[in-house]
Design a protein around this nucleic acid. Structure first.
Lengths: 170, 170
DNA sequence: AGGTATTGCTTGTACCTACAACTATCAGTT
DNA sequence: AACTGATAGTTGTAGGTACAAGCAATACCT
């Protein structure tokens, strides 16, 4: 077994802390959304992504890329959201293989209703714990990691403070 | 709907970037371990936790706490690892409800074999992208978040082990 | 046009995980 | 000792996700 570059003490401690966060934070996000709004975090993120799109409409493939979902995954999630009346599927004009997904009024209401509580939870779990300097550091660090994790920038990568209008945070 | 404390632009960008990392990094970790060593990251973490315990043995409940797993989850994962010959279950002396889990020689070998590649992957995905300052910042930030996510420090406290020599990073 | 590869999406199958129910055991009370 | 409640662990069942297969439509190439 070739001698690997091991981790320094600093790296090791950073890694253990980060690994714990990776294990715990998604569950904490899911739990609040499920409890308060009967949505998984992925479903919420899906709806929120749609809410920010022009006409609140996206092609399924584009939505899958933005949410880092496989096509099978997004397909089944959309089936569930469609049954709940939160989205509708329709044919795509210029490509008859493809389908458009549109947020319904009910879906829009669901996002608008869920967003404040979700934001409050994010604030409680993350930003209330960090200084403004740490928030900036975190953004920069996460952006660096995305360079390797998502080199094509498929998922939202926000380099700096671009102003969203009245949109719903993901 | 009460007016929520919204996110500032900095917070919003930090959150979108962090959310993307939360979505992508676990998959990237799992993919490498599955491909190279036929282990999920959770299985690897389980074996690594055992490898650091005294006598390479832990009670199932303690293992569940350290890995943030529910008892049903750890139970089934252990069943799989037992079938693969990587761990054994045995009765606990002082509490006949409980069981001890012990890493077998084969399990120890599996961790030792997987560790360098896993570490290399962690380095490639994370630390090669960060300056030493950012590594320190990340550790501090993650530690702050754990204050809310894991107030009792369950995932950290590896019960002081006597066999600290040839340990394997989690 | 005709043929082949690729893309967009859905569905079959298998695995993983959570919640709940269940057994067995322990701890505290009377 | 008997009773009650809590704890350790396993298993039934349901829901989510991935991989692979499948169908429809497009793109490319000659």
């Amino acid at each position: 077994m070739a001698d690997p570059r091991w981790l320094t003490d600093d790296e090791r401690s950073a890694w253990l802390n980060l690994a714990s966060v990776l294990e715990l934070l998604p569950g904490a996000l899911d739990a609040q959304l499920l409890r308060d709004d009967d949505l998984t975090h992925f479903e919420y993120f899906t709806l929120a992504s749609l809410s920010e799109a022009p006409e609140r409409t996206l092609r399924i493939k584009a939505l899958a890329d933005m949410t880092n979902a496989t096509l099978p995954r997004i397909s089944r999630v959309l089936t569930g959201l469609e049954k709940a009346g939160l989205i509708t599927r329709s044919l795509c004009d210029n490509d008859r293989r493809a389908r458009n997904v549109t947020l319904t009024e009910k879906g829009w209401s669901a996002v608008v209703q869920a967003a404040p509580r979700h934001v409050e939870n994010v604030r409680r779990l993350v930003f209330d714990r960090l200084t403004p300097e740490q928030t900036a550091q975190l953004s920069s660090i996460a952006e660096s990691l995305l360079g390797e994790l998502d080199p094509e920038g498929r998922m939202f990568t926000v380099p700096a403070s671009g102003s969203g209008s009245g949109d719903v945070p993901g």
